[in-house]
Design a protein around this nucleic acid. Structure first.
Lengths: 120, 120
DNA sequence: CACCTGCTTCGACGTCTGTCAATACAGGAG
DNA sequence: CTCCTGTATTGACAGACGTCGAAGCAGGTG
């Protein structure tokens, strides 16, 4: 391991994924509407929303499944929902030993908020 | 302190409905997650998204059903989706003569965007 | 009144989705 | 290796959802 001097690189803001234009700017294309709908659908379930917020608000920016799985549904169901959130690009997961940790994929939230931007 | 002649009142932003705290701030309560999920669910369909964006981007801020109903599904289906959007509090409708006009319910979009606010 | 147009409601149908129990898999401990 | 714990996958099932055609209703026109 070299004594490599890690200067901090100026981090360019992980540019908010420009999936689609804001809903208010113009009539959405068929294609864009499908993409956007998929993102909203991922958050359109109470259980998923709770899981997501638990990960998002967890210290260190990540949470092990065992930390957040107490949301009133069975363990397989929790796993199912986490998979959906992963597939939607909202969460990322990593296995470390026995446990699997989830963290919020950076940028996505801001991107979604941008879709709702009021033209005003 | 006012040489402020009432030509135009300084418009206070129609305070964004504070339905729930942002997803990132803390673990969502069961109740809040249900409310939020309902709002996202309303936008979690391509057809609804297109209808909504057509209303939102229409000149004058409102659109008659006949202006926006060409989205590839039957007319009853359009009506069905508009009803959902109405029930979700995203659109308001008003009948004027033969036609029914829809407009975006003010504030809701900003409110939803607020739910996605990144703590950063 | 009868007729037409714009929109909504009804009823039915197929597909999608959330849920669970059972099972499988991965990794650490003994 | 065997056992145990944490997580994912499978399979099944009920209920929710998007869609349509048909019928209903509201308002304008003659």
């Amino acid at each position: 391991m070299s004594n490599l001097k890690l200067r901090e690189l100026p981090v360019i803001e992980p540019e908010v994924v420009p999936c689609c234009p804001p809903v208010t700017s113009a009539a959405l294309s068929e294609e864009d509407s499908v993409k956007m709908a998929a993102m909203f659908k991922a958050l359109a379930d109470p259980v998923r929303l709770r899981l997501f917020s638990r990960v998002a608000s967890h210290e260190g920016g990540e949470a092990c499944v065992c930390d957040i799985q107490d949301v009133g549904v069975s363990q397989p169901t929790v796993s199912h929902h986490l998979k959906k959130l992963r597939e939607a690009g909202l969460l990322a997961s990593e296995r470390r030993g026995t446990w699997v940790y989830y963290r919020v994929e950076p940028g996505v939230l801001a991107a979604m908020a941008g879709l709702l931007a009021t033209a005003r």
